[in-house]
C-alpha cells in the first residue's frame, strides 16, 4: 500500500520519536539518533523530515515550554499518531515479509562471498 510508505530516514525519525516518547523535540531527537546510530544528522534534514511526517499525519506536535537556554523559544514536542503507528507496522511487516522470502542459500552464499 502506497499510502504507508516511509523513507529510511523517516523510519529512523519515527522510531526515535517512539523511543523518546513524550520527550521528543528537535534537539533530543537529533542527539538520540546520533548516539544510537552513530551518524551525523543535520538540523535541516531532521526538521524537513519532521515537517513532512507531520503533514502526512504520522506525527502530531504540541508546543512546549520556553526555556532560558533556548533564548525564550518554545520547544515543539512530537508524538506518534495512530496512523503513524500503522505506517511503522506496515513498514516493519513488509521488511519481515521480504526477509522471510529470501532463500537461506542466497544469504549464506552472499555471506560467504563477502567473507
Amino acid at each position: 500500500m502506497k499510502k504507508y510508505q516511509l523513507g529510511e530516514f523517516e523510519e529512523v525519525v519515527m522510531l526515535t520519536v517512539g523511543i523518546l516518547h513524550l520527550e521528543a523535540y528537535g534537539v533530543s531527537i537529533k542527539k538520540e539518533i546520533e548516539s544510537r546510530l552513530n551518524r551525523n544528522v543535520s538540523v535541516g534534514a531532521l526538521q524537513t523530515a519532521l515537517k513532512r511526517l507531520e503533514d502526512k499525519g504520522y506525527l502530531k506536535s504540541r508546543e512546549g515550554e520556553a526555556t532560558e537556554e533556548r533564548a525564550g523559544r518554545p520547544k515543539k514536542y512530537f508524538q506518534i499518531t495512530a496512523l503513524g503507528k500503522r505506517a511503522m507496522e506496515h513498514t516493519k511487516s513488509t521488511r519481515d515479509e521480504l526477509w522471510s522470502a529470501i532463500p537461506k542459500m542466497a544469504l549464506n552464499l552472499k555471506i560467504v562471498g563477502n567473507w
Binding site: 523535540y25 528537535g26 534537539v27 537529533k30 538540523v43 526538521q47 515537517k51 508546543e63 520556553a66 537556554e69 533556548r70 533564548a71 523559544r73 518554545p74 520547544k75 515543539k76
Partner: peptide, 13 residues
C-alpha cells in the same frame, strides 16, 4: 510556522 522552535533548537545546540 516553523521559525520559533527551530530557532530554539539552533540556539540550544
Amino acid at each position: 510556522e516553523l521559525r520559533d522552535h527551530i530557532e530554539g533548537d539552533l540556539i540550544e545546540l
